[in-house]
Design a protein around this nucleic acid. Structure first.
Lengths: 124, 124
DNA sequence: CTAACTGTACTAAGACAATTAGTACAGTTA
DNA sequence: TAACTGTACTAATTGTCTTAGTACAGTTAG
């Protein structure tokens, strides 16, 4: 479900956050789906539960999951676009596009990629 | 020319790298253009010269600039696509697209954005 | 009710990276 | 010569990440 890379310079809790966010926004983890418990996921990844707890706490603060004491953590549908996050992502999008074009990747190639991702999600 | 954010969790040298890379790939900093000297940019940003030196060293290693002792540092045209870097950027591109669509941004909107960026670069 | 789960909170310690300060040396240029 | 350039190196400091350990309250199946 999730893998982390110890050689990666990025903090483990960031890697966990990004992996879970990717599963959620891609639809692989539907709304109201139950996530692994803090201790369970920590055991699976062989890391400290505190690290998972931090990832869950921040994902909840960002509105991607909801944690309920005694019950568990669950993916949540996203109501109302977070305009700050959207701005961040658009900036990241623009940067990636600019550098890709600089490295020789055509704009048409990128547009095709958007369509392919859209088609792939419609399958599921 | 460049601004850094002390509240940003990312290291200063990474922020400097990204800023310079953005200037280069966007065309704002043309090939063979001279960059500010290590000490000059450090003074301007009110940070240690060692931090700038690290940013320059890594940008040179990645092929975006060339540094010559006694002369200075210069932007370089990029020969031969770095396939590893391209893969990284495509992954970042895909992630941004997926999350943006999840947050309600249409795919057509993103395609339009690619065209606009292309047009803006053609002006310069 | 009990036992085993759930999230959550907190302290303490260690490891590591980032940053700074300071010094130094060699090449370039007006 | 003087003032610039990049580069290299050590030492000290600071802050973050991660772990270990303990604890408490809510939930749920038996």
């Amino acid at each position: 479900m999730i893998t982390i890379n110890m050689r990666d310079s990025r903090p483990i809790y960031e890697q966990v956050k990004d992996s879970l966010r990717r599963l959620i926004v891609s639809g692989a983890l539907p709304a109201d789906e139950k996530l692994p418990s803090v201790r369970e996921l920590a055991a699976q990844l062989v890391i400290n539960p505190n690290t998972i707890q931090r990832a869950y706490r921040e994902l909840e603060h960002e509105g991607y999951i909801v944690s309920v004491p005694g019950k568990g953590s669950f993916a949540t549908p996203h109501f109302g676009a977070d305009s700050r996050r959207v701005s961040e992502l658009l900036a990241a999008f623009d940067d990636a596009v600019a550098e890709l074009r600089y490295l020789g990747v055509d704009g048409a190639e990128l547009k095709k990629r958007i369509d392919e991702q859209e088609a792939k999600k419609d399958e599921a």
